[in-house]
């Protein structure tokens, strides 16, 4: 059994989290979150992968050809869109934070101000 794709997915998840925890800049933090989210794409696609199979698009291939799982591919598509929207929303928050606090360093944002 090949475990490498699963190991890489777990590694991407953890290294992204490490980046978030140690981040000194909110823009960097959003990018780290994108890395964390990309682990889910890899995990989904790895689950659907099948050796010697092709993409589930029957334009040019015979109907009985072996194809990889289309369900996880549709889920990965969804996942990517959600990832982009989350990043955009967080970047908008970062813009506002910089306007209010004058800094993007999360360590410098100590107290809540009204």
């Amino acid at each position: 059994m090949t475990v490498l794709p699963y190991v890489v997915a777990a590694w991407l998840f953890l290294i992204g989290l490490y980046g978030i925890v140690t981040s000194r800049n909110l823009i960097h933090l959003v990018t780290c979150l994108a890395v964390t989210q990309s682990s889910t794409y890899l995990l989904l696609l790895a689950i659907g992968y099948q050796e010697d199979a092709t993409a589930p698009i029957f334009g040019d291939i015979p109907m009985d050809a072996e194809v990889v799982d289309p369900v996880v591919q549709a889920m990965t598509l969804t996942d990517g869109v959600v990832s982009v929207t989350v990043s955009a929303l967080l970047l908008a928050l970062a813009v506002q934070t910089h306007k209010r606090a004058g800094t993007l360093d999360p360590n410098a944002l100590r107290a809540l101000r009204g």
Binding site: L4, Y6, Y49, Q50, V67, V68, D69, P70, V71
Partner: peptide, 25 residues
Amino acid sequence: FGVQPSVYGEQLSERAVDERHATNV
């Protein structure tokens, strides 16, 4: 890794072209 597709996925790959006339499953 790389061995069995899910039952759901397999069913969709087999049926989608006939049932929906869409080649992109």
